[in-house]
């Protein structure tokens, strides 16, 4: 829920034409949205979402057109539009800053954080700066109470925020967040891979894929054999290969140094194909499904294993 919500917001921001005004609302666009959701029956929220996606907010004209097109009264539409926090009747700024004022954050001085945000941005909560850069909103709990006070800027969560750090956060948001932050968010992180048999490193610093040194293994599938390079980013599925690998084909992984088969200990839980086992760092075994197109993978920590 959280991650999809974030993504949606991001697309809204990038879609938004910078100075969208009431006049820009085209009847045809609204009608297209109505048709898409079969406006005659239900689907009001979906239609409002569509409009908000298009304009970044819900323009008054758009709601009036919607009311005419669907035969619903404007009161009902307005009621729904004001009921949900995710809809807004006023244009939002390019960056959305959301500060949590829930109980847990409140006792950890969230009101002071909000005050500081208001001061730095020169606006009050639920307002937008005149240059349409920032919108400040408050919410009542983001479900991350242990990390409070929580501030979310354009989908990036910041925990245990201090008043002193606010200025920097806003500066960072203005310049766009660096990419590593985004990677962290997707739970992808670079790994160091080695052969579980001979402990020789499998890293191939000479070949960079997606900005990271690749992991090189030998593979064989039926008659064919050759090399395969994987992105050394846990969570990423990118790879390069000597041969075309059709989706669904299973291959066997071998160490390029000791030539041993680097098989995993179990079968893939997703598709029951064999898995390859690669040592990650000092104490973990990463098993990945050997079938092209399957996302099955499993990370086992040695410490956990020996405990069991």
């Amino acid at each position: 829920m959280k991650s999809t919500g974030k993504k949606k917001k991001r697309t809204v921001i990038s879609d938004e034409p910078d100075n969208c005004t009431e006049e820009d609302v085209k009847e045809a666009d609204i009608l297209a949205i109505v048709r898409k959701h079969d406006g005659a029956r239900g689907g009001l929220i979906a239609m409002l979402e569509g409009i908000q996606q298009k304009y970044g907010y819900l323009p008054e004209n758009a709601l009036r057109i919607l009311s005419n097109a669907t035969g619903r009264s404007l009161v009902d539409i307005y009621g729904v539009a004001t009921f949900y926090r995710s809809f807004t009747l006023h244009p939002r700024g390019k960056h959305l800053v959301t500060a949590c004022l829930g109980t847990a954050c409140h006792v950890r001085a969230a009101p002071r954080i909000v005050e500081e945000l208001e001061q730095q941005l020169g606006i009050k909560a639920s307002e937008t700066t005149p240059d349409r850069n920032f919108t400040l909103e408050t919410v009542n709990c983001l479900g991350a109470c242990a990390l409070g006070p929580v501030v979310v800027i354009d989908g990036h969560y910041f925990s245990k925020v201090k008043t002193a750090g606010i200025k920097k956060l806003i500066e960072e948001a203005r310049n766009g967040f660096p990419d590593e932050k985004m990677l962290e968010r997707e739970f992808a992180f670079p790994v160091e891979a080695s052969c579980p048999q001979c402990h020789h490193s499998l890293m191939d610093a000479g070949n960079i894929i997606e900005g990271y040194p690749s992991i090189r293994v030998d593979i064989s599938a039926g008659e064919k054999s050759g090399w395969l390079r994987l992105v050394s980013l846990y969570g990423s599925r990118g790879f390069e290969s000597e041969h075309e690998l059709p989706v669904g084909e299973s291959v066997a992984f071998f160490c390029p140094h000791c030539k041993a088969r680097i098989a995993g200990t179990t079968l893939c839980t997703e598709c029951e194909a064999t898995m390859a086992g690669i040592r990650i760092g000092e104490g973990a075994l990463l098993q990945i499904c050997e079938r092209r197109g399957c996302d099955g993978c499993r990370l086992e920590l040695d410490a956990v294993k020996s405990q069991v």
């Binding site: 009264s73 009161v75 009902d76 539409i77 307005y78 009621g79 004001t82 009747l89």
Partner: peptide
């Protein structure tokens, strides 16, 4: 007529005409 209705919610809930 359906000229007035509820808007907002919680503390801010009120009755009025759209916009």
């Amino acid at each position: 007529a359906k000229a007035i209705g509820f808007q907002n919610r919680g503390e801010k809930r009120s009755i009025g005409t759209p916009f």
